[in-house]
Nucleic acid binder design. Structure first.
Length: 347
DNA sequence: AACACGCTCAACCGCGCAAGT
DNA sequence: AACTTGCGCGGTTGAGCGTGT
């Protein structure tokens, strides 16, 4: 269909001048934007409405937070992206003062490279295949990952030379393992270990596994998986199943907003009714407004969370979650030259 | 000092959707 | 029902800047 507003009249393009900014700010703060297509005319700008809207939303809005992203924000982006994929607008809703454009740029310029540097597919958050690694690592940082078999111990070795690739806070998510077979898992020698932590249940992601197996077991397992409301996909250290490993191999807690409160848990149960699986935002709003008249903790704003999309977004990723009925130990080996090695072994 | 290269980020483009006619 | 209009979103581009050689 395209846009007609931009092609109809002569409009200026490119960077905005301070004068244009001032005109737009003055107009919107006085009258509000109303219909964007009429803003340029009313504000005396030679721009199309779309350009005005973009300029206001991404740059001039008074509630924008400027400056670089914090570590906390970065982790939030990664966690939400893992669930929603490239839904930048949705992700930005979890970051007050940030725009979708900002989040998108940050992802593409920074986080994406960190993923690749650690041998992870930025799209699926799973480990890249060796083929993908070869094609993704033309230069920059050298990534070497080993999937030992049949010991099931693995390592992700990241070597960082690029100053922009700050590896102080590795965000390696739970790495995929071969199908659990505790009988064949041998611990790696511990003589070289500096520290370790224990995960009592393990999340196993197998890109080749069929989602339907899991879904058949429980019609709402996906919801539970996404919201961390089930013990099935959780661990003692990572109840949500969507945490991240910090430098001490502890699960990041920044995603507590995805931990349902008692009230949210009730709502989740309501939403898990079969006929409500495909609940739309408006319906969620209705639920919010009518449920006992109580004000809902919107730290995780369900109206912003597209439950339907969770299913559609996760399935193509081939994410699969199951319990590894054994005890796995994460061991971080601090290597020289900034290399970090993460190993998971069964005990 | 000059050039090449890489990175960041503001802005643009095209598409899909919804509401209005 | 078909078309138009407007908005919002995700992908892409390119100017400007910093850094390395």
């Amino acid at each position: 269909m395209g846009h007609h507003c931009c092609s109809k009249q002569k409009v200026k393009r490119g960077l905005w001048s301070p004068e244009e900014d001032e005109k737009l700010i003055r107009h919107i703060t006085t009258y509000g934007h109303g219909c964007w297509s009429s803003v340029p005319k009313l504000a005396g700008l030679q721009r199309c409405g779309k350009s005005c809207r973009l300029r206001w939303i991404n740059y001039l809005r008074p509630d924008l937070k400027r400056g670089s992203f914090t570590e906390q924000e970065e982790r939030t982006i990664i966690d939400v992206h893992r669930i929603l994929g490239n839904r930048w607008a949705q992700i930005a809703k979890h970051l007050p003062g940030r725009t979708d454009n900002e989040v998108k740029n940050f992802w593409n310029s920074c986080i994406k490279k960190k993923f690749i540097a650690q041998g992870l597919d930025p799209n699926t958050h799973n480990l890249l295949s060796s083929h993908q690694i070869n094609s993704n690592n033309n230069n920059a940082s050298k990534v070497c990952h080993h999937i030992h078999q049949p010991t099931s111990a693995f390592s992700v070795i990241s070597q960082t030379k690029d100053a922009s690739m700050d590896m102080k806070t590795p965000f390696i998510t739970l790495p995929p393992l071969p199908p659990p077979d505790t009988s064949s898992i041998n611990p790696i020698p511990t003589s070289s270990l500096h520290e370790n932590s224990t995960i009592t249940a393990f999340e196993w992601q197998n890109p080749n596994s069929a989602w339907t197996d899991l879904r058949d077991q429980s019609s709402h397992s996906l919801m539970e998986l996404a919201m961390g409301s089930t013990p099935v996909a959780s661990s003692a250290l990572n109840p949500s199943g969507f945490g991240i490993l910090d430098e001490n191999c502890m699960w990041g807690t920044n995603f507590e907003s995805f931990e349902p409160t008692g009230q949210e848990e009730m709502e989740l149960q309501q939403k898990q009714q079969p006929q409500q699986e495909k609940i739309c935002e408006g319906e969620v709003d209705k639920v919010n407004k009518t449920s006992s008249g109580q004000k809902i903790d919107n730290s995780f704003d369900s109206s912003n969370f597209d439950f339907e999309f969770v299913e559609s977004a996760l399935m193509p990723c081939g994410m699969y979650c199951s319990v590894f009925a054994g005890t796995l130990q994460y061991q971080k080996l601090q290597m020289g030259g900034g290399r970090l090695v993460y190993d998971a072994i069964a005990s």
